[in-house]
């Protein structure tokens, strides 16, 4: 018979994955699995149940089995904590410098802030967990805050990207050609879920 219960781990900890099946069988299998494991899980934390959608009654029942019988604490880990897990160093944090032009077909990825001393040409990609600064023309694709930091920004001396992404928001160049080309450096950031582009030297 196919096992419906499995213990799995990710960077948050251990979770119990439950495949779709009858609740009674799930309960039985969970108990036998834990019996097999003996003391292995004793005193450890399980973060959640995943897989099959459980209603609250079922979930509580399983929880009490795990907690009372086997001494495993179930942290009711919520999804919120995961969202807080993105790169925080956009004010001050690790930064990579690229001293060359990023050309078509090249992709620079970094889990921090990224500074390109050169251009990013159309077809090239720069992706960073933090801010992106291009000290030249940005004509390719830039994705700042790619692991979810919506406060990340993209700045360039000449900001003309084919596509601009910040966190989960994607913006692209308008289809009509008569977009005013700015003569000065600009910065793109997110305000109320919209990518906002403005000069960062206000006097200009």
């Amino acid at each position: 018979m196919e096992s419906l219960i499995s213990f799995k781990g990710n960077r948050e900890g251990i979770y119990i994955h439950i495949k779709d099946g009858e609740f009674e069988i799930i309960k039985q299998q969970l108990q036998s699995k834990l019996n097999e494991a003996g003391n292995f899980f004793f005193g450890s934390n399980v973060i959640n149940f995943k897989g099959k959608q459980l209603d609250s009654k079922e979930e509580n029942e399983l929880k009490s089995i795990v907690e009372k019988k086997y001494g495993i604490a179930v942290d009711n880990y919520n999804e919120q904590t995961e969202e807080e897990n993105f790169f925080q160093g956009i004010e001050e944090g690790k930064t990579k410098f690229i001293r060359s032009t990023v050309r078509s077909g090249q992709c620079i990825k970094y889990d921090g802030n990224l500074i390109v001393i050169g251009d990013v040409n159309a077809g090239g990609q720069v992706i960073a967990n933090g801010n992106i600064l291009v000290m030249g023309s940005l004509r390719g694709m830039a994705h700042a805050g790619c692991d979810g930091n919506i406060k990340a920004m993209v700045a360039a001396f000449d900001l003309q990207p084919t596509q601009l992404r910040i966190a989960h928001i994607i913006a692209r160049k308008p289809d009509n050609d008569d977009v005013t080309v700015s003569k000065w450096p600009e910065v793109a950031k997110i305000e109320e879920d919209i990518v906002l582009i403005e000069p960062y030297l206000r006097k200009k």
């Binding site: 060359s100 990023v102 050309r103 078509s104 090249q106 159309a122 090239g124």
Partner: peptide, 12 residues
């Protein structure tokens, strides 16, 4: 020009 750009990157 786009392809030339790609090629220059590959050459480098």
């Amino acid at each position: 020009v786009r392809d030339a750009d790609r090629i220059i990157g590959l050459l480098e």
